[in-house]
Amino acid sequence: MNPNALSDWQTWAAITAVVVTMVLFIRGARKKKKSGGCDSCGPVGCGSDPE
């Protein structure tokens, strides 16, 4: 393990990636709630999205 973890650019890059992911997830969930659709249908999409 890296003792002076926070001074290292990789840690910052990793934390940024994690934060961006979280933001995207929250935004995605909001959008989905609004549209009420099922765009992330199944593993493979259902091919029958509601109108």
Partner: peptide
């Protein structure tokens, strides 16, 4: 192809996101 592409899309979005968060949570 359509279904395969949808599977990859899901891997590149939802699953990728969860994997990143899980990595953070294990680190």
């Amino acid at each position: 192809l359509d279904r395969g592409w949808a599977f990859l899309r899901k891997a590149g979005t939802t699953i990728l996101g969860i994997m990143i968060l899980l990595w953070a949570a294990t680190t």
